[in-house]
Design a protein around this nucleic acid. Structure first.
Lengths: 206, 206
DNA sequence: TTCGTCATGTAATGGGTTACATGATTAC
DNA sequence: GTAATCATGTAACCCATTACATGACGAA
């Protein structure tokens, strides 16, 4: 059971395939173009993942069948498309606003598909990531304060650069959150129960 | 065989223990304070790693024995120290200037112990990382140029932020490299053979 | 005496990579 | 016709995590 459920790949594949049907090779290129700054997937993980998703019925092979390529018997590319079940599963993944959405490995992928994510979920993910980073800042800052003197210049420089990067990402998140907030003028005060919300559609997904 | 050879942990442990003997719990705290912005280790990987390193003879238990704690039979903390072999191994790890030193997962740890790394090796690692990042920039930039139009605003923003972060790190590396170069006024032109280099000591390590 | 944190460990699992193997198609 | 790149796949391994289990010690 190498690779479909639980990993980031599942979302990455499902999300990509939702936009348009693709074959494995092309899918990988797109993914690495999309997330290239953060991570890169290899074929060794992608193909087994596709196989698993196929077995689970979340994706299906797409037959070119009739038009534009009448050659028979030739099928080297295997183009996959999302099934109805697959769309459901994708929706499920995109609705989860928990650590699995805002940790380092997964945040980028989730963000990349924000277009298909509900506005409220987007906000909670952004805030989740921000507080995750702030936690990190706090713990490193306090640890640093206690030991700053006995650190060599390289270690110090690493700390400085690390802090700066994370602080920068927090600022970036702040801006995003502010923008998102303007988008949803509902929930004036904080509500613990979240029943129906009349005009809050942003999901698209079909 | 969970965990000692090959991983980043080996270097992290050996490097930390070189500065001062430590027990596992404290070691982990230090490591996570040192590298907290980049990654975090768990006990589940640290302890098995220590066990392995102990078995390999790279570290040894340190007996408090005589002074300052005369209570007998009590030994809840297990303090480890580097052996001669361990120091050798550490030196070996710190001399490797290859992908294993400048990839995302490992660069931080290598940088953190630059104090114990030869000046030339430092330079090659910094340059290696820089060109690694530049490769990434290139491939993402070209891919982006071909598909910019059909990208939604979230994807675009992710790309922008990713590019900016990496560009920023490249600039940081540029500065570091410049500083390093001032430190070693040898090799006026590029030499393919690198035989002895008389006065290039910075290693310390005993 | 109970709670937090210090302290050490193990088993199961996980999610992905590397390296390998194969073959079709395109460009020169 | 041969080299590059497109395209698909598998087996072995890797490095670390999660979750669990245990217990000592200090402070409230």
């Amino acid at each position: 059971m190498t690779g479909a459920r639980g990993g980031v790949l599942e979302l990455a594949v499902l999300g990509s395939l939702h936009e348009t049907p693709l074959h494995g090779y092309e899918l990988r290129k797109r993914l690495n173009a999309l997330l290239g700054m953060f991570r890169a997937f290899s074929y060794g993980s992608l193909y087994p993942c596709l196989r698993q998703l196929l077995a689970d019925g979340l994706i299906a092979e797409e037959q070119p069948a009739d038009v534009a390529a009448p050659l028979s018997g030739r099928r080297s590319k295997i183009v996959y498309k999302l099934t109805a079940e697959g769309k459901e599963r994708l929706q499920e993944l995109l609705t989860q606003a928990g650590p699995s959405a805002w940790e380092d490995e997964s945040f980028g992928i989730h963000f990349a598909f924000f277009r298909h994510t509900e506005a409220e979920v987007r906000l909670r993910i952004l805030e989740g990531r921000r507080s995750r980073l702030e936690e990190r800042l706090d713990s490193v800052r306090t640890a640093l304060a206690r030991t700053r003197e006995r650190l060599d210049s390289y270690t110090l420089e690493l700390q400085r650069h690390g802090l700066e990067s994370v602080e920068r990402e927090v600022r970036w998140l702040n801006e995003l959150i502010a923008t998102e907030r303007q988008g949803l003028p509902s929930t004036p005060t904080d509500r613990t129960d979240r029943a129906e919300k009349p005009g809050s559609d942003t999901t698209d997904l079909d």
